[in-house]
Design a protein around this nucleic acid. Structure first.
Lengths: 217, 217
DNA sequence: CGGCATCCGGGAAGATACTG
DNA sequence: CAGTATCTTCCCGGATGCCG
C-alpha cells in the first residue's frame, strides 16, 4: 500500500479508502449485500480485475466481508462490516459538497443505490414535517423499501409489506422528478416512470430532498 | 481528468479532489494561506512537481487561489476559496472515521494544522461546558490563536492579543498531551513542550478532544 | 456465471537534479 | 525560494484466457 506517513486521521482514511473506485464500491454496498455482477453493472467504468483487487483490499482492511448467502440462494455476496457502514458520513459529506459544484452534470447515469442515498443525504426535515410513509422503489430487478419520517429515511432491500406509494422506473427517471424538477405526469407520459398508490404523496415526495444552491461558474 | 461518468455527487467530488494528496493539501490550507515551501514542509512525502500539478488543478477547479500577499510581504501564497473551505466537513468525516481504525498509528508525524483541525473535529461540547478561552499555539515559526467556546473552536493564524494560555513546542508533543494522554509535566521535563499561563486551563484543555473508541483488531 | 491470472499500453506518481 | 525537467516506477484500465 502507498502510505502518507502522517498521523492525521484524514491521511489514514485516504490510505484505507482513497484508491480509485473504492469509495464508490462502498457506496453501492451501503444499502445491503450485493453480488460481483451487480457491482459491475452499477459501476460501468470499473473493470473486473480492478473490482477484484479493490474488494480484496477492502476485505483485508476490515471494511467488507465476502460471504455466501444461506441456502437455497447459496450465492456469494459482498457485504459491509459495521465499520464499513460507518463510512456513510464521508460519502454524504462529499455528495453534499459536490452538489454545489458548477461542473456537476446531473444528466449522467445514476445507480439506484446512489439515488436513494442522495435522498437520505438531502432529506429536508422541515419539509418532511408530519410525514410517516412506507415507499417502494422498483428499479428493474432491484427492489427497495423506504420508511420515511421527518428525522430519518430508513432504506432496505426488498419489497415493502404495504407501501402507500411505489415508484417504478429507472433511477434516472426518478432522479429527474426529485432532483430535476420534471413533473411526474410528464415522465409517466414518456413511459419512463410509473407511480402506484398515493399520487399526492408522490408529488410531495419529489419536494423533500432539495439540492443546495449551485455556485456561479 | 479521469472521470467516473456518474451523476452521483460522491463520484463528482472524487473527480475534483480524489487525486492523491489533493485532500491533504486542502487540509493544510484550511487555517489560512500558506506558501509553497510551507506546504512542502507540511507534507514531506509530496514531491515538488506533484505539488505544483495539484495546486494548478485545484486552482482551475475553483478550490484555491494563487495570489501575492500585499507589500511589504509581496510573496506568493495559496489560499482556499470559500468553496474550498467548505471541504472541511469531508476532512472531518474522514478523520472521525479513521480514528477508529485498528491500524491507525498515532506515533507518526503530524502537522500543526492537522493537530488544530483535529481539535476542532473532536471538540466535546459536554466537557467544554462553560469554557471561554483564548489559547495560543507556537509550533516553531508557525503561530496560531484559537478561541475556544463550548460550541466552537475558532482558529486563525497569528499571535493572540491576550491569551490565557500558550502552548509552545512541536505539534507531536502537544498531540501526545491531548490525544495520547501523556502528562504535561512529563513533556515539559523532556523539554518537548512549554506551557505559559493558566496551567489548570492547560490541564483541562487536554481533556476536551477525546478520540472515539477503537475497533478490535 | 463468478471470479482470478496474466499481459500490455498509457498515464499518474515519485525521486532527483536543475533553473530563474 | 518557487517552481521545472527528466527519468523511473507503479497503478489503472482493457483484453483475454482459465477454472470452478
Amino acid at each position: 500500500m502507498r502510505r502518507y506517513d502522517d498521523a492525521c486521521g484524514t491521511a489514514h482514511a485516504l490510505e484505507l479508502l482513497g484508491d480509485r473506485w473504492a469509495l464508490l464500491i462502498l457506496r453501492e454496498l451501503m444499502l445491503g449485500a450485493r453480488r460481483f455482477s451487480q457491482l459491475r453493472a452499477d459501476l460501468p467504468g470499473l473493470s473486473a480485475n480492478v473490482l477484484t483487487q479493490r474488494l480484496g483490499e477492502l476485505e483485508s482492511r476490515g471494511l467488507l466481508l465476502h460471504r455466501t448467502l444461506p441456502p437455497p440462494a447459496s450465492v456469494p455476496v459482498y457485504e459491509l462490516t459495521p465499520w464499513g457502514y460507518e463510512t456513510e458520513p464521508i460519502t454524504q459529506a462529499m455528495g453534499r459538497w459536490a452538489a454545489r459544484s458548477p461542473h456537476h452534470d446531473a444528466s449522467l447515469r445514476i445507480s439506484g443505490v446512489s439515488l436513494l442515498l442522495s435522498f437520505r443525504t438531502m432529506l429536508d426535515r422541515q419539509r418532511a414535517k408530519g410525514i410517516d410513509a412506507e415507499v417502494g422503489f422498483r428499479f428493474g430487478d432491484d427492489v427497495y423499501r423506504g420508511h420515511l419520517t421527518p428525522s430519518l429515511f430508513a432504506i432496505s432491500q426488498g419489497a415493502p409489506d404495504d407501501a402507500q406509494l411505489v415508484f417504478i422506473g429507472s433511477p434516472m427517471a426518478l432522479g429527474a422528478a426529485v432532483h430535476g424538477g420534471v413533473p411526474i405526469s410528464k415522465l409517466e407520459k414518456a413511459g419512463a416512470l410509473t407511480v402506484i398508490g398515493d399520487r399526492k404523496l408522490a408529488q410531495r415526495f419529489t419536494t423533500l430532498f432539495p439540492l443546495p444552491e449551485k455556485l456561479p461558474t
